[in-house]
Design a protein around this nucleic acid. Sequence first.
DNA 1: CTTGACCTTAAACATTGCTTTAGGGTTTAA
DNA 2: TTAAACCCTAAAGCAATGTTTAAGGTCAAG
Lengths: 135, 135
Amino acid sequence: MYQIGELAKRLGLSQATLRFYEREGIIAPAERADNGYRYYNSLHERQLRFVLRGKQAGLSNSDMRELVHLKAHAEESTCREVKDIVDLKLAKVKEKLAELQAFERSLSDLSAACCGSDELATHCAILEALDEFVD
Amino acid sequence: MYQIGELAKRLGLSQATLRFYEREGIIAPAERADNGYRYYNSLHERQLRFVLRGKQAGLSNSDMRELVHLKAHAEESTCREVKDIVDLKLAKVKEKLAELQAFERSLSDLSAACCGSDELATHCAILEALDEFVD
DNA sequence: CTTGACCTTAAACATTGCTTTAGGGTTTAA
DNA sequence: TTAAACCCTAAAGCAATGTTTAAGGTCAAG
């Protein structure tokens, strides 16, 4: 059993983040001593690591809240429910990826068009490309 | 000369967004009639399209505020200043892209591991992968 | 003179994921 | 007993990009 400061240090999180996760229902509430202090054991730590791995994979806090719940009630839950969360996020990531790839191309094209020197910007190819080509 | 409602319609923006851009200093303030109404001309519209193209390329509001300023003062500005904005954003986009690609891989791997059926989640491969492999 | 369609503002709200602040108990060691 | 190092809460703040709400002028038509 250890206090929040130690758990925070072990996981590389701030104490405020741990309290935040608890408030958000992402992790199970810690046990409390009579003075109100939170006390944690290895199960809490394990649950936190579960959450951190999910976040590393790009899952959000609310995703992890759901997954933690499904895991805690695995007897009444299905693989489908679990996989749906992952697949939905995967679809969103792919969408975002496509958007960012489009940005990358646009920005590369703009950058390539411009000399980037001390020339006056009056004829800068970037500004011209973004402006209307009024004939 | 036309009012905000027409300009919004032409550009596919809301009136609130146009006012917001003006407040943020992203576009030049509209002219005002005696009743306080904003009035726009083709130059305003052109500047807005400039901003919208930049945003399509992934540039932020503050990027566009700067670019609009550089364009308006092109005589005292350099290509370098313009290109720096684009290149900085490009670098950020590439960073974000790398992060999202890592997410995509992680999520794909998770998804592939799980049957996604009505099976009980008690042995779900996703939950196991996120959990610790305690031997 | 009233109705509907315009327009105005300031300020609050929404989203995500925390961090920071303010104000205050508890514990331990010297 | 006092100082350092713990812990607690509620609430506000931040980042970015708008959207929504509340309250209220203006204008043209019938």
